Computed example of a mutant assay.
Amino acid sequence: MTVSANQLKTEITYSIYPISDGKPMAESDSARDYLIYGVEALNIYFQDRDDVYVSGNLFIYYKKGVPSAVIAPDVFVVFGVEKKKRLSYKVWQEAGKVPNFVLEITSAATQENDETEKPLKYAALGVQEYFQYDPTGDYLTPQLKGSRLVEGKYQVISPNDLPDGVLSIHSEQLSLDLRLIDGELRFYDPRTGKKLLSYQETEQARQQAEQARRDAIPRLLELGLSVEQIAAALSLGVEEVRHLVL
């Protein structure tokens, strides 16, 4: 079988810069779930921005020709690069852009690395914000921590205690709040007060809203509204309302 020059180049590149270390994505259900939530929620939030790349558990190579110079943040966001699928992220191919925001899901296996080695690497690279979250609350105090790069060193971002007792830390890079609600990490848009949802949560919310509109039809009919008025009020098609009425 003849191997093309492009195929050979690709195989050599992958052998030098692997796209996987063969290890599981996360060591526990909770670590995996929050990794997925973070990537999905931020992808949805930035879906209209073509210059924002959101990913997680992806190899980031930061020195050309040095494959050992690699990190793999659980969740990260890069501004000023093309939104596209990547097998790995090579800084020298991305105009030198490094993540602006990194979130690590801390566990027993990652605690020491998350607390010591990774902050040094991220600071040296110029990652502007470094957040850590411990789903079980066993390894970090407090359970959610955030740091911002100031003159080459990370300084702790002071958390806010909301009136309802919720711990909230603001990310200047994302213009979002990271909040700890009954031990659960969630992203919030402080401008709207709305929680960022995952793909599954978004679909569930859509279905619930659709059902709520349908459930409102009988009550609106009892109030004397016409089918046309109900359709306009509920943002439904006239024929759809007629079908539901029948």
Score class of each variant (00 low, 15 high):
residue 85 K to S: 12
residue 133 Y to Q: 02
residue 106 T to R: 06
residue 240 E to H: 12
residue 207 Q to A: 11
residue 73 P to D: 02
residue 19 I to W: 05
residue 204 Q to D: 09
residue 105 I to S: 00
residue 107 S to K: 10
residue 161 D to Y: 10
residue 187 F to S: 02
residue 74 D to F: 05
residue 71 I to E: 03
residue 195 K to W: 04
residue 166 V to S: 07
residue 122 Y to R: 06
residue 10 T to A: 14
residue 143 Q to W: 09
residue 223 L to K: 15
residue 13 T to H: 13
residue 28 S to D: 05
residue 126 G to T: 03
residue 65 G to W: 06
residue 37 Y to Q: 02
residue 52 V to K: 01
residue 163 P to L: 11
residue 91 V to A: 05
residue 157 I to E: 03
residue 233 A to K: 12
residue 17 Y to S: 12
residue 179 R to S: 07
residue 144 L to W: 09
residue 156 V to S: 15
residue 80 G to S: 05
residue 164 D to H: 07
residue 98 V to T: 12
residue 205 A to N: 07
residue 130 Y to C: 02
residue 33 D to I: 02
residue 136 T to F: 08
residue 217 I to R: 00
residue 215 D to L: 07
residue 4 S to G: 14
residue 193 G to N: 01
residue 49 R to S: 09
residue 242 R to Q: 15
residue 133 Y to R: 01
residue 103 L to R: 04
residue 190 P to W: 00
residue 107 S to N: 04
residue 53 Y to P: 02
residue 225 L to W: 11
residue 238 V to R: 15
residue 210 E to F: 07
residue 48 D to N: 11
residue 91 V to E: 11
residue 191 R to E: 13
residue 158 S to D: 15
residue 175 S to E: 15
residue 83 K to I: 01
residue 164 D to F: 14
residue 153 K to E: 14
residue 224 G to H: 06
residue 5 A to M: 12
residue 227 V to A: 13
residue 39 V to D: 08
residue 79 F to D: 06
residue 129 E to S: 01
residue 140 L to M: 12
residue 193 G to M: 03
residue 164 D to I: 13
residue 241 V to F: 00
residue 182 D to L: 11
residue 207 Q to Y: 07
residue 220 L to H: 02
residue 125 L to F: 09
residue 199 Y to R: 11
residue 188 Y to I: 05
residue 50 D to Y: 05
residue 80 G to Q: 08
residue 131 F to E: 06
residue 179 R to K: 14
residue 49 R to Q: 09
residue 155 Q to Y: 14
residue 11 E to I: 14
residue 243 H to P: 04
residue 208 Q to T: 08
residue 222 E to F: 06
residue 73 P to I: 04
residue 176 L to H: 05
residue 19 I to L: 12
residue 140 L to Q: 10
residue 149 L to W: 04
residue 30 S to D: 15
residue 124 A to H: 13
residue 202 T to G: 05
residue 126 G to A: 04
residue 115 E to G: 02
residue 142 P to Y: 09
residue 236 L to M: 15
residue 135 P to F: 08
residue 218 P to R: 00
residue 90 K to Q: 14
residue 177 D to P: 04
residue 164 D to G: 13
residue 149 L to R: 07
residue 76 F to H: 03
residue 236 L to P: 09
residue 193 G to W: 00
residue 25 M to Q: 13
residue 58 L to V: 10
residue 18 P to W: 11
residue 7 Q to C: 06
residue 22 G to T: 12
residue 6 N to F: 10
residue 59 F to V: 01
residue 165 G to N: 10
residue 144 L to H: 07
residue 175 S to I: 07
residue 175 S to D: 15
residue 43 N to Y: 02
residue 190 P to G: 00
residue 92 W to I: 00
residue 22 G to C: 12
residue 143 Q to V: 08
residue 20 S to G: 13
residue 41 A to D: 01
residue 145 K to D: 04
residue 188 Y to Q: 08
residue 245 V to R: 13
residue 157 I to S: 08
residue 35 L to V: 14
residue 38 G to S: 09
residue 6 N to M: 11
residue 187 F to D: 04
residue 216 A to C: 04
residue 36 I to S: 12
residue 156 V to G: 02
residue 49 R to G: 03
residue 131 F to M: 09
residue 87 L to S: 15
residue 141 T to W: 07
residue 82 E to S: 08
residue 213 R to H: 07
